[in-house]
Simulated assay, not measured.
Amino acid sequence: MTRGGVPATRTLDHLTVTKISVGPMDNNAYLLRCGDDQVLVDAANDAPALLELIGPAGLSAVVTTHRHGDHWQALSAVVEATGARSLAHADDATEIPVVTDTLAEGDKVRVGECELEVIHIVGHTPGSIALLYRDPNGHGHLWTGDSLFPGGVGNTQKDAARFASLIDDVEHKLFDRLPDDTWFYPGHGKDSTLGTERPHLAEWRERGW
Rank of each mutant, 00 (worst) to 15 (best):
A8C: 12
G5N: 11
D92R: 06
L116C: 11
F149A: 12
G83N: 11
F184P: 05
D46C: 08
V111Q: 00
G23P: 09
M1T: 06
A57L: 02
R207M: 12
G4Y: 02
K173Y: 02
A81P: 04
H66C: 12
T16Y: 02
P136M: 08
A90F: 04
P7G: 10
G69C: 03
V17A: 00
V170D: 01
T182R: 09
H124P: 03
T196G: 03
T94G: 06
G69P: 07
P186I: 10
V98H: 13
L174A: 10
A74T: 03
D70W: 10
A61G: 09
I54H: 03
H188P: 06
V98Q: 14
L31R: 08
L75D: 13
R162L: 07
T65C: 14
C34R: 03
G187P: 10
K19R: 15
D181A: 13
A77W: 04
P179T: 13
V22L: 05
R198K: 09
C114P: 03
T9Q: 14
L75S: 04
A77N: 04
V22W: 00
E203W: 01
R162E: 01
W204D: 02
T156G: 01
E117P: 01
Q38I: 06
R33T: 14
A8L: 15
P199Q: 04
H200W: 11
H89E: 05
L75V: 09
L75Y: 04
V63Q: 05
R67T: 07
A90V: 12
A47C: 06
G35K: 12
L59Y: 10
E95D: 15
L178E: 11
L201K: 08
W183I: 13
P199G: 08
D107M: 05
D180N: 14
G35Q: 12
H124K: 13
E171V: 06
C114M: 06
H66T: 08
S21I: 00
A44D: 11
D91E: 15
D181Q: 12
G208C: 08
R85A: 15
H89W: 01
D92V: 11
P126D: 15
T94S: 15
I20Q: 03
A130K: 05
T156Y: 00
A164L: 14
V170N: 03
N45A: 15
V63T: 05
D180V: 10
N45S: 15
W183M: 13
L32V: 04
K173R: 14
G106T: 10
D13H: 07
G138N: 05
P7F: 06
N137T: 11
C114I: 04
G138W: 02
D146S: 05
I121F: 12
A74V: 04
D176Q: 12
G83C: 11
E206I: 02
D37H: 02
E203P: 03
H89Y: 02
F184V: 01
A43M: 00
W72S: 15
K173S: 09
A43E: 02
A81H: 03
R205S: 08
L12P: 08
D101F: 00
F184N: 07
L31D: 01
G154V: 07
L194M: 12
L132G: 05
Q73T: 11
R10F: 08
A81Y: 07
T102R: 10
G127T: 07
H139K: 12
A130W: 00
D181R: 12
V17N: 01
M1F: 04
L103G: 10
S128I: 07
G140E: 05
S21R: 14
E171I: 07
N137E: 06
A104R: 13
P150A: 13
N27K: 11
S128N: 05
S165H: 01
